[in-house]
Design a binder for these strands. Structure first.
Lengths: 210, 210
DNA sequence: GTCTATATCGGGATAGAC
DNA sequence: GTCTATCCCGATATAGAC
């Protein structure tokens, strides 16, 4: 006897629908720019219903941010703690990170915006998701020396790696317009190619020449 | 007979005072996050007076944006059109750009935010300030080959250069907290050091090894 | 749980005195 | 030119019917 539990009515869990709609709107507009009305429209329901599920805009936003964050962090933490050689870490990071951002192109701008709007509490949030930056610095430090790369402050290396991965996403609109004739699929190909390009670029930069 | 023209009263031109206050607020909060009241407070005057000088919030914002832009662009255009060898261009750009951002640390986030809020009209605004990206691509292309560097898509090179310069400013709050124990002056030293570090990094990355 | 209607509030903008 | 007081709208939030 099968109960039609999961797909009985069209509502497929209203809460989830609202979350998806809110995510879409908040990610593009940011907290200040987002409107509860727009979220309701996007969800195809009434504005009051949004308040019924999440009492306030802030609550809803926090839920979205938390969700986005949980998507962001775990893989990162996993990779950087790996025991592989530096080259492999850089290759894997560049590939995985770019791949993830291709699936969530608005995430970086969203998080950057929050970081600047809310500098206080963010660091703790990062740490609570298992990001151990000082450890990362040490790991890079050690690998750099023992694997015989050019002398480079590991903090520069980390910032460079992140910047090269993230920047083309947050500056996409202007770069795409100015250098890619506003051709979106061309720009996507460009981003795809960066999965390997960024790693290659960095590895060349830190390799010792002779 | 000297008239005390320029420093007669404390007001030193109210319009300028408002512009300075508005710049401070808009740059940190963005358009949506900024409040006319806050701008008035920052300027030490009344809210109505702000509306007296600039009819609307949008007007005021446009004035700020234009000003910020004029500060940003001209030097850039000048450098990239120079006839010097690639290495020198990269060195000069990294140095000059970082130096400018150190003087206007909130500018990049402000412009990025606008770029994403307003993708349509921005490209034209860039062009109107003398930025010729397709020409820049060609220049880099030519210099790369004739000066015998590693084969690299000049578009990657440009994005990398910009990303390495800009990212540490837009992600400053989180990086400073997580890697620099929230020590602001340490982070400033770090940014200072990037004037040379970024150039060195890139030049190593594109140099042919043997 | 979902809707309509409405209360409430904040913030941009204006009127008018000085 | 600068202020106080006020208008007015848009947006968050709540009340209450169904």
């Amino acid at each position: 006897m099968v109960k039609n539990n999961d797909l009985n009515n069209s509502d497929k869990n209203t809460e989830k629908i609202i979350l998806d709609a809110a995510k879409k709107v908040f990610l593009v507009k940011g907290f200040d720019g987002a409107r509860m009305q727009e979220i309701a429209d996007e969800a195809g329901i009434n504005k009051a219903l949004v308040h019924y599920y999440f009492r306030s805009k802030e609550n809803l936003f926090d839920a979205i941010f938390k969700e986005a964050f949980q998507q962001f962090m775990p893989q990162v933490a996993e990779i950087v703690s790996s025991e592989e050689p530096l080259i492999r870490i850089i290759e894997k990071f560049s590939d995985m990170y770019t791949r993830m951002l291709l699936n969530n192109p608005h995430l970086p701008m969203f998080i950057l915006h929050e970081i600047n709007r809310n500098p206080e509490q963010l660091a703790e949030k990062f740490r609570s998701f298992g990001v151990k930056p000082e450890q990362l610095v040490q790991v890079f430090q050690k690998k750099c020396s023992q694997e015989n790369y050019r002398v480079i402050d590991p903090r520069h290396l980390i910032v460079n790696l992140l910047g090269l991965c993230i920047f083309p996403f947050v500056a996409r609109p202007i770069i795409q317009k100015l250098i890619f004739n506003n051709n979106s699929s061309e720009y996507n190909k460009f981003l795809e190619s960066r999965k390997k390009e960024v790693a290659e670029f960095i590895i060349n930069a830190i390799s010792i020449k002779k």
